[in-house]
Nucleic acid binder design. Sequence first.
DNA 1: TATATATGTAAAATATAGTTGACAAATGCA
DNA 2: TGCATTTGTCAACTATATTTTACATATATA
Lengths: 69, 69
Amino acid sequence: MKNLKMKFARIEQDISQIELANRIGVTRQTIGMIEAGDYNPSLKLCIAICKELGKTLDDLFWEEDSNEK
Amino acid sequence: MKNLKMKFARIEQDISQIELANRIGVTRQTIGMIEAGDYNPSLKLCIAICKELGKTLDDLFWEEDSNEK
DNA sequence: TATATATGTAAAATATAGTTGACAAATGCA
DNA sequence: TGCATTTGTCAACTATATTTTACATATATA
């Protein structure tokens, strides 16, 4: 499932996937795959993304009624 | 850094590392290492732990003033 | 037209999360 | 005392996240 909350938070900051990736220290493909969903990033990476976008884990990565284990 | 919030949440539920691991579908070593810190679990695993312990990502894995990137 | 920027995607390589099996130590209870 | 439960840890293995390189498409702008 796509992570639109993260994509919107990034667009709010008016930065590209490349810019976000560079600031965090990962590749743009990694950012793209997370936004595209069907991906399982590490906790450290999630936290780095949150801090760069001024959000928390719950803001960007928590789905109250998520079925996936 | 140790994840005491997760450890306390587990103890609150009165379940062992083994029990939590079994419910989630990982090994007890994995749970132990996350509680011991210096570990970087996947987002899916963090979410599974949260749901089993009745907490959210921010409850167990968010540090407002975390320095790690 | 062309040129640059942003994004999607894919295959192969590398780094690391997570497993498996085992042994040791601490605790509680008979 | 013993015995079971819980936890810590380690080494070797497997699964998968992330990188690297590359090619494609869409859009905006000169």
